[in-house]
């Protein structure tokens, strides 16, 4: 029994929405960071589903690029977060509040 591509697309859309909403409502920086990963993986799932449905390898190769970029973002992002927490912050975004106006 095969599952229609629509289900995968819907799942991806749900994952993307969960990630986007999570990023906007959660205050823990690490959780916000995970939400971004969730959004990127939702895009990956969409790519793979369409790749399969269109019988085109381009979408699958795009996934590799997205994975590499996600890894690079993790490196830089965690570096920034660690350097900040070393100073004084707890792990919440509300502690970062000097810049406003």
């Amino acid at each position: 029994m095969s599952v229609s591509p629509t289900w995968y697309l819907v799942l991806a859309a749900v994952l993307f929405t969960v990630g986007a909403v999570g990023l906007l409502v959660r205050r823990n920086v690490l959780v916000m960071f995970m939400c971004i990963e969730l959004m990127l993986n939702a895009a990956n799932l969409t790519f793979v589903t369409y790749s399969r449905a269109l019988n085109d390898v381009g979408g699958q190769s795009a996934v590799f690029f997205v994975l590499v970029v996600a890894a690079a973002e993790v490196v830089v992002g965690l570096g920034i977060i660690v350097s900040l927490f070393r100073r004084k912050f707890g792990a919440t975004a509300d502690d970062a509040h000097i810049l406003k106006g």
């Binding site: 969409t46 970029v69 973002e73 920034i80 970062a96």
Partner: peptide
């Protein structure tokens, strides 16, 4: 550091939207 964190979180957010 705070600027870097804000720029990074919103930049990565926009990249994820873009790639979707």
């Amino acid at each position: 550091g705070e600027a870097a964190l804000k720029y990074f979180l919103l930049g990565a957010f926009s990249s994820a939207i873009f790639v979707y």
